[in-house]
Amino acid sequence: MTAPTPRPRRTQEQRRAATVAALVDATIAAIGELGYQRATVQEICGRAGLSVGAMFRQFDSRLDLIVRTADEVFARQLAAFQALMEHLGAQADSLDSALRFLREAQSSNITHALREIYLAARSDAELRARIEPTVTSYYAAMVEGVEQTGVLSQFPRTLRESVFFLLLHLFSGEAIVRPVYARPDLDASILTLIEDMLRTYAESLPAGE
């Protein structure tokens, strides 16, 4: 009987990367489910299956872990958004597809985690300062993706960024209210209303605006 080939041992860097990934995934889950304050180091480490000491060998503080987690959330969200943008050109109704994606993304656990980090950053100057550069580049990339796709091409360039953020904030607010006041019976009609309002407004603009 042939002896099984031994699996190659992971390098120290590979082990470190695996530990960091486990901590980041656990942080996203904990913050998204429990909120920023209740996502303690003990809670995060328990979910990751790691000791508190293992966490502090990778990060000097909980804040450092939160910042690294925010970076990962931005990267994942942007990757999903860019993948959608690449496929919108093949859609018969790209605006409808974009709105549905934006709404669904705002209700995901990873977005809830990001929203919790934003709320914490509102009163935590150090957290706010450390994530601000990534936040800026994240939204700039999203706006650029919308521009390249042409999903809002019916609006003049001077308005497209405002329309994008209007929709983003609308669905973000909806995602906050939904857990305590769910009205799935209104979901379809609200989406139709938003689309109709956008199209009507675009058609009302003077040609060449």
Rank of each mutant, 00 (worst) to 15 (best):
R10T: 15
E13Y: 14
A17L: 04
A18P: 00
V20C: 03
A21R: 10
L23N: 04
V24D: 02
D25P: 03
A30P: 01
G32W: 00
E33Q: 13
G35L: 07
Y36G: 02
Q37S: 09
V41P: 11
I44R: 05
C45P: 09
R47E: 00
A48P: 02
G49L: 00
G49Y: 01
V52L: 07
V52M: 06
A54I: 04
F56Q: 11
F56R: 11
S61L: 09
S61P: 07
L65Q: 03
T69Q: 03
T69G: 03
T69S: 06
E72Y: 13
E72S: 14
V73P: 01
F74H: 12
Q77I: 02
A79F: 06
A80R: 09
F81I: 09
H87T: 12
L88W: 12
A92P: 06
S94K: 13
L95D: 07
D96F: 11
A98D: 10
L99Q: 02
R100W: 12
F101E: 15
F101W: 15
E104G: 14
S108I: 01
T111M: 03
H112Q: 06
E116Y: 10
R122F: 13
A125C: 04
A125K: 08
E126S: 09
R128D: 14
R128V: 03
R130G: 02
E132H: 11
E132S: 11
T136F: 10
Y138T: 05
Y139K: 10
A141N: 07
M142R: 15
E144Q: 15
G145I: 08
V146W: 08
V146E: 05
Q154D: 14
F155L: 07
F155H: 10
P156W: 09
T158H: 12
R160Y: 10
R160M: 00
E161L: 05
V163H: 07
F165E: 05
F165Y: 07
L168N: 07
L170P: 03
G173D: 14
E174A: 08
P179S: 02
Y181V: 08
A182G: 01
P184K: 01
L186E: 07
S189H: 13
L191Q: 13
T192C: 14
T192H: 14
T192D: 15
Y201I: 08
E203M: 10
L205M: 12
P206W: 09
A207T: 11
A207L: 09
